[in-house]
């Protein structure tokens, strides 16, 4: 049995990638299983999906804690999520990144791989620059790096199960397959520095999660930052009205300001702004 864990953000297609991998494995004659795990569904929130591929029906219904491969659709998650947790020795860490795999930090023995799936997706007009749909390119890379599915199976699955732009997605899978770089495992690699895990939640005395909502910083979900060009702002307050998280406040002159600790970068303010004065800028 091969176990693969996907890390992405709501809206990036991690769940669809895991399901598509299962469909492709099934077309290859395997017995797959795929399921996602997420909290309250919101665009930008970290999402995990699990895919198991075996020759026999899968006899487990649990999350994957010791994966053979980890796929990271958003390199920003490397800094905030313990994506490599439990990776098997000689397992694969595959990251969507323009940088070479040498730049990745991984546990000793883990093979590192990277593919510039964002560039591939945009080249095939999949998604938007703000939200490129990278999953088919990443799956192509995964097929090459792990052999868990054949490119043929993946291509057939894309044709059968991807309703939008099947041809472009097929090409993206092919380019991902061709464009992935895999390093052999380095047993002498230094162990990654221990990750600063968030301290465990101390449940309040008594029964209730009476924690201040000021403490729930959701900025880590953001990949694009709204920038307001105040010279064209008409103070119409539409951004404030439509912001789903009350992340917009006003300065003394009545101009809107983004409370970046709470902005998830959803882009609704930019879409709703009548004079289009809000620009979504990709974060480094």
């Amino acid at each position: 049995m091969i176990e693969i864990r996907f890390h992405g953000r709501g809206g990036q297609g991690a769940v669809v990638a895991s399901e598509l991998l299962a469909q492709a494995a099934f077309l290859d004659g395997k017995q797959p299983q795929s399921f996602p795990f997420f909290g309250v569904e919101r665009r930008g929130a970290p999402v995990t999906a699990y895919c198991r591929v075996d020759d026999r029906p899968v006899g487990l219904r649990t999350s994957i804690t010791a994966p053979d491969a980890v796929v990271v659709l958003d390199p920003g998650l490397l800094a905030t999520e313990p994506v490599a947790d439990g990776l098997k020795p000689n397992g694969i860490l595959l990251v969507n990144s323009p940088r070479p795999p040498q730049a990745l930090i991984a546990p000793a023995g883990v093979r590192r791989a990277s593919v510039d799936a964002t560039r591939i997706a945009l080249a095939h007009n999949l998604g938007t620059p703000m939200l490129p749909i990278v999953n088919t390119a990443v799956l192509g890379a995964l097929a090459r790096a792990t052999g868990v599915v054949s490119l043929e199976g993946l291509t057939r699955a894309v044709g059968q199960f991807v309703p939008a732009r099947p041809e472009e997605n097929r090409l993206a899978a092919r380019d991902g397959y061709l464009g992935v770089t895999v390093l052999p495992g380095d047993a002498s690699a230094p162990a990654p520095p221990p990750r600063a895990r968030p301290p465990p939640l101390v449940l309040p005395e008594g029964p209730i999660a009476s924690v201040s909502s000021e403490t729930l910083h959701t900025a880590a979900w953001r990949t694009f930052t709204p920038v307001i060009h105040l010279d064209r702002c008409t103070k119409c307050n539409f951004c404030w009205k439509f912001c789903p998280d009350d992340a917009i406040e006003f300065d003394a002159k009545g101009y809107p300001q983004i409370r970046l600790a709470y902005c998830k970068g959803c882009g609704i303010c930019a879409a709703e702004c009548p004079p289009k004065t809000i620009e979504m800028v990709a974060e480094a």
């Binding site: 008594g206 209730i208 999660a209 009476s210 201040s212 909502s213 729930l216």
Partner: peptide, 15 residues
């Protein structure tokens, strides 16, 4: 005990 206080941002029973 552990109640909402107007003016203080607090959540009860959240996710």
């Amino acid at each position: 005990h552990a109640v909402l206080v107007p003016g203080e941002a607090t959540r009860l029973g959240s996710f």
